[in-house]
Amino acid sequence: MEIRLRRTMLYIPGNNPGMLQIADIFGADSVLFDLEDSVPHSEKDSARDLVSNMIKYRAYENIEITVRVNPLNTPYFEDDVKEIIAAKKLQAIRLPKTNRAEDVDKLAKLIGKYEKENEIAIGTINIHPMIETALGVENAFSIATSSVRVNAITIGGQDLTADMGIAKTKSGEEILWARSRIVMAAKAARIDAVDTIFADINDKNGLIEETRLIKKLGFTGKAVINPRQIEPIHKIFTPTEKEILWAQEVIETYDKGLKEGKGVIALRGKMIDPPVVKRAEKIITISKLGK
């Protein structure tokens, strides 16, 4: 199974060549070229042509390339999928307003068709369903397990609160249940959970507070709308020196204990059992990937 950091997924408006051409210099783990909300209806065709050409000809380095297409029920959806797959270097498609497993199935079939047409190995392109309706939240687990292509699910806070008929607040209590539900679905499906954006780009403390919260809940990363938001999020999602030392010590002590045939293994009076070792190993893996 692929292990990749998705601490940050940077949205880039699909009709902005100046931003698209430098998308990989900001240090985000993934870029998210947007054909949906940031592109007016009159420019859907030009954004699609531009994003396809960027993916095809611009040699982006060390970054996951993903595109948010227009929703299934729009006239742009199939052309978006067709054109961006033909560019050949796409890694994942973010499907907005995913309400049920059948939505993912429709996209997966279409991806398969265009992978074949473009001689791309079947299964190369992943799907990141975006859950942003009450119905989508209720169907989170079936969406998360709807296709082997789904390796992350995401939440869209603004659309979700609009669908619920309430306001999206900075503190976000109103989406706590949805966040928790989506994280649990992702954990059960053994895939990543990526949080919604933090809209106030000038409020660094607010961003830090929210990122700490969503990390505690179990999210593996967050979508960002401004390069300035990348560094604070990476800092929170990257293990500290102290955590790395603890993890190394746990693994060493556990291995030594096993060799010595000990029944109960402890580090400074605290028992080390397989779940603790698993967490320590994850810390080491993330610290290596995050360098």
Binding site: P17, S46, L50, S52, N53, M54
Partner: peptide, 10 residues
């Protein structure tokens, strides 16, 4: 150039 090609295509 890739932007020029994309805009011309559109």
């Amino acid at each position: 150039n890739l932007t020029i090609k994309a805009r011309l295509k559109t």
